[in-house]
Design a protein around this nucleic acid. Structure first.
Lengths: 196, 196
DNA sequence: ACTAATTCTGACAGTACTGTCCGATTTCTG
DNA sequence: CAGAAATCGGACAGTACTGTCAGAATTAGT
């Protein structure tokens, strides 16, 4: 159980299995956080015992999935460079990037958080994401582009909620991805007081 | 198992038990949709067998809870008279009413929907609520108060998402109820293009 | 081709929940 | 108070999942 590839003495075999398990776990857990290890193993094309060979327990697997989803989401946000340019433009850049890149990770994170039991750990998990959002929002308020009367935490939560809502509309087929991005560009900044 | 009080030959005893079970179910299921019947019975101060005396199966109980939550939510919405007066004012009235009255019911509905398995039945459950929201939104668009470029379905979903987000902020103690209502009054209409 | 890592099949105990039955007991209703 | 309704405690089979073990069969690295 090296788990972290410190001295990568893992065989290519194991590497492949871990990747398959991880991918299957992300896919299944995003929709159903109570998916069993057997289901995940089957979806990964691997036996249940192989999963246990790489992850001590169910919680270990869940933690690993959550940790990487968080890291991926944060990386994608940083790639959108929210600290560059005019805040409203940075916000629109973030909306565009969110769509294909960030949403899947955020979705797993959202689904997995309750499974960790603690009620406040949901927020704790999203902390690095919220921190980046809030930094952008604070910058926008200082620049007079966002409503200074709205609490920073609220704006960040509302942003997350709207992105999630849009993702669901797309998933349900009630909105196509292009139209969703446009609608978000129209809705979100206005909600925050940009261009009022 | 009369269940529906057609000819109410139920004893006051049974009536009390059913009410206790229902209340406990709402409370537990809102937070944890996978709560066991044993847990619900314990929370209701009733034996597990008594629950089975009134509800044939787990799904019967869940359906009953969902049905009543939906009915209560719809009644509360209608009480806010969304069809009366100026659309923006009606919207603000709805926001105020949502807070204490509608949110608990909507919350159970949201939590329970995935437990019903079907992916599209979530939307189906919310249909009566969405229908009323969309009627108000359409009226607002005709009156020139809401952005006519935004799809009606999107506005309704966004409304729901923002109400839910605010409820979580309050539940987590990051916002108090009064401030939340004010923040919503400031955020929601603007997102929909009111007063632009 | 040899060795060690990895996977697989099969099986096991332990736990928890669902539904169901029973008999005994309590609590309403008239 | 008497009969009926309802609840309770205990117990049962059935199902499903979690971890764990061991031996056989593959598969990768050198």
């Amino acid at each position: 159980m090296p788990e972290a590839g410190t001295k990568s003495r893992r065989r290519a075999d194991a590497e492949r299995s871990i990747a398959a398990i991880h991918a299957a776990a992300v896919e299944l857990l995003a929709e159903r956080p109570d998916a069993s290890i057997g289901e995940i193993a089957a979806a990964a094309g691997v036996s249940r015992q192989t999963v246990y060979a790489h992850y001590d327990s169910r919680e270990t697997l869940l933690t690993a999935v959550a940790d990487r989803a968080l890291a991926d989401a944060v990386a994608a946000i940083d790639a959108a460079e929210p600290d560059r340019g005019a805040p409203t433009e940075a916000l629109e850049r973030l909306i565009a990037a969110w769509w294909a890149t960030i949403e899947p990770h955020a979705r797993v994170l959202e689904a997995l958080a309750p499974a960790f039991g603690s009620p406040s750990r949901i927020h704790e998990l999203h902390a690095p994401i919220l921190e980046r959002l809030e930094r952008l929002i604070r910058r926008g308020r200082r620049a007079g582009e966002f409503d200074p009367e709205l609490p920073v935490g609220w704006i960040a939560s509302a942003f997350l909620a709207l992105m999630h809502a849009a993702a669901e509309e797309v998933a349900a087929g009630r909105l196509d991805a292009d139209r969703a991005a446009e609608v978000l560009r129209r809705t979100v900044p206005r909600a925050f007081g940009a261009g009022g």
